[in-house]
Design a protein around this nucleic acid. Sequence first.
DNA 1: TTTTCCATGTAACTCGTTACATGATTTC
DNA 2: GAAATCATGTAACGAGTTACATGGAAAA
Lengths: 172, 172
Amino acid sequence: MDRELLLLGLLRRSDMHGYQLHEFIERDLATCTELKKPTAYFLLDKMTRLGWIVQHEEREGNRPPRRVYHVSAAGEAQFQQLLRTNLSQPSSTRFGGDIGLIFANSLASADVVALLEQRRVVLAADLAATQAAPAHAGSLQLVIEHRIIHLESELGWLDTVIARFTASASTE
Amino acid sequence: MDRELLLLGLLRRSDMHGYQLHEFIERDLATCTELKKPTAYFLLDKMTRLGWIVQHEEREGNRPPRRVYHVSAAGEAQFQQLLRTNLSQPSSTRFGGDIGLIFANSLASADVVALLEQRRVVLAADLAATQAAPAHAGSLQLVIEHRIIHLESELGWLDTVIARFTASASTE
DNA sequence: TTTTCCATGTAACTCGTTACATGATTTC
DNA sequence: GAAATCATGTAACGAGTTACATGGAAAA
């Protein structure tokens, strides 16, 4: 329901058509989430069927008509509901990268260290890029800070793991 | 490919049948990942078709026959490949819970604080449960520590967010 | 004797992605 | 005249889940 919340929230600010929504999300919200074009169009159709949004066509000359969406009263109620649920529940995170760690003892510790160093490089680059992002307006800044804090925590943890495997490599 | 790595890694230690794998993952690896029964059976079929594992039936009396799986040479190569990829690449994390935050200014700050406090309770309970988990053998301990560090980081961040909305609630 | 456990699976569905298809318009 | 941009979608696929179906054995 997070995507639906996102679309409702954006449409509540101003009416938009699918292309516009997709573009905004890919450009301005990339640090936070992503939403492919077909998914956007599909969800807009679905939400129209559910009566959360209403669509009206705008046509300019001979161009393909724009379907501009507007949040209905039912959609506004739904938005409030989804927002409250989203805020009150932590999103469960699973670390797929931990599965490899379970089996790290299948490799020589030196190999594990080399591989984790590679992971570290990518992670550090991600952190640097996020930190370099220009200060964003309002609550979006919170999201960027969240990402930075998370990446810093990941880096710190990764360093302790690397240190351990480095230590055991020296005794092998 | 994380689930495939998981199954290969477990089967590499000892041959098992589907039910056994599913049970082990749900019971002993619950902190780290989950794998539903149909998914397990589906993946085992797929990996058999790919030649990564081979199956042989064991029957005991009148009970349903067990399909016991064993990692083939090709499967072992695949395991090495998947393991190296997994270790060398950070897993990208998306925080669905941040989408609500983008629209938090649609609510009164006091409401946001109340909702985030709820989130905090759940998060804190999760952390307590993870900390209370008995020390696990070997590299699984790493995974539990990862989870603890992550949850602590999340809690810390959540507290700063709550503090900000508390501050702005007092000036509304 | 009814429930739980062992052990297998199928069917239907949701969610999301990639790749493909269309056609006008503006920019180089 | 070619390429990028605007604007819409469909079709096919993949991953994973829930709910359902089966049937014997052990435990309550």
